[in-house]
Design a protein around this nucleic acid. Structure first.
Lengths: 237, 237
DNA sequence: GAGTGGTCTAGACCACGTA
DNA sequence: ACGTGGTCTAGACCACTCA
């Protein structure tokens, strides 16, 4: 844990506790240098983290303001999450029903998305995720078998992400996501209890590892009234 | 224009020109310090910009790699754009049809989104944007009249964003966006040529100015087969 | 072990908002 | 005019990858 992360954590905590209330000004960076006994560059990096999280906003010549922080709704999940549903749904009852699980050769689309050749086998996984007893999302995933080793039904029933991180020791570098609307397909109608006219919200994603390899291409489909995605965008100064 | 922005621009250009090809390593930061005659911190900030754009990826102990950069499709637009359609559709024929334009008192939802009181009037604007002759998106916007002064039909036919930046001299700080799917409403059916069963993709956004005020709450609705949104997400090191 | 990028410092100057 | 945050430097040490 770096110094600037520690400082960001402390200040974030103070904001959440109301020690620095919404719309008030943070202490200026020189005062924070005195308090934390670090250089101003380090304070600045901590401020940057909080800025990117949408908690504060800095203006040259004025100061750094605490922003309103109850912006994100309850039912909406950030389009920028990696932990998977297990973490997003913490405290709620999450079950996974495995609709399909097999190994196969990738078709052209999957080859392109995973940037692999036709003879590199992939896992094909279709899971229905059920939250508090209600069908929530269908995930269609493809993962190369030479990166995600020894995937089992047991892992699929829990969290793939935990397995990748903790068992395989792989770290994520980022993801490219695309969000669109669609008509329901046969899986949606059967497992999400969709009518023929119920729109579907689909999030496609490709996940990159730190070494540049692609570990996952997946499509997450939900009924229009069950899920939405939020994106916080901060313009850098 | 800061030094690190200039350096990022130069290196970005070299990547696009193939001087630094995909999958090759960039010169190490010390060599770049020599070339550009700046401190290493400045080089690092330039690298950060390119990293956030998804052009390169740095690994401690190894180096900085050039990534595959033709990831984003043609029909998909980043969920992180401010310039509005006029810029996104550059080179294509963009027309705006004004469906509704008036001043009114905000209802509860609009009060909440714009963080204003019930007696602060707002502009209510409904525009159909037409690209290359095809209806593309309906934008329902609300803007406080005390921030966006003297809005006219003339401005609406061109670009509101240009007016805000250039005429009013206001700068954006960021935006909070939410993406969902929905059933078509009467406007969609009439102007987007939707059938009753055609899903709609809706992007809601609230745009913040640098002084913390909210200038715009808008809902952009498109037919499911016309538009999608992409989000690039890079995990910071 | 050699070489890489990540963090951190102390101090300087500059651009901007407020009054 | 003053105080604020943004940029930049020169140099140091550390964490990590790879041969």
């Amino acid at each position: 844990m770096t110094k600037y992360e520690q400082i960001a954590d402390i200040i974030r905590k103070r904001i959440k506790e109301g020690i620095y209330p919404t719309d008030s000004w943070l202490p200026n960076q020189v005062d924070l240098v005195d308090e934390f006994q670090v250089s101003r560059v380090t304070i600045k990096k901590a401020m940057n983290i909080l800025t990117m999280e949408g908690l504060v906003y800095s203006q040259r010549g004025a100061g750094t303001r605490v922003l309103n922080n109850d912006l994100l709704g309850v039912d909406n999940y950030s389009a920028k999450d990696y932990e998977g549903l297990s973490v997003q749904m913490k405290g709620r009852d999450l079950k996974s029903h495995i609709i399909y699980f097999n190994v196969e050769f990738p078709d052209e689309l999957v080859q392109k998305r995973l940037m692999i050749s036709a003879h590199q086998p992939v896992y094909k996984i279709i899971r229905l995720r059920i939250v508090d007893g209600n069908p929530y999302v269908i995930e269609h995933s493809f993962m190369p078998t030479n990166i995600v080793l020894n995937l089992t039904v047991d892992v699929l029933k829990k969290s793939i992400y935990d397995y990748i991180h903790q068992e395989l020791g792989l770290g994520f570098a980022g993801a490219l996501r695309n969000i669109k609307a669609d008509r329901p397909d046969d899986y949606d109608k059967e497992f999400l209890k969709c009518g023929d006219c119920d729109p579907i919200l689909e999030l496609d994603q490709v996940i990159y590892l730190k070494d540049g390899k692609i570990i996952d291409y997946s499509r997450s489909r939900s009924r229009f009234d069950q899920r939405s995605y939020s994106v916080l965008d901060v313009i850098d100064n």
